[in-house]
Amino acid sequence: MAKPAAIRKPKKKVNPLDKEGITYIDYKDTALLRKFISDRGKIRARRVTGVTSQQQRQIARAVKNAREMALLPYTTTAR
């Protein structure tokens, strides 16, 4: 009776960085980095952000640098 789940056709994501033409991810640019962290301050996964793996690494490094300088939170319990 149970039908096999229909094969999902994932929607192709647009790469948000290529769209904006950003080549260098600056840890000081918190407005940009906030797009890549969740409400709780966690770094969003690549399958969510839709960037390339190289870019994801650059984002992760930038976020971690920004956290060290208190530009971004390590955690947020509120919200």
């Binding site: 260098y24 060290e68 300088m69």
Partner: peptide, 11 residues
């Protein structure tokens, strides 16, 4: 309170 040194070309 804090310092950070970064080489923008590599990071």
């Amino acid at each position: 309170l804090r310092t950070k040194v970064v080489r923008p070309e590599v990071h």
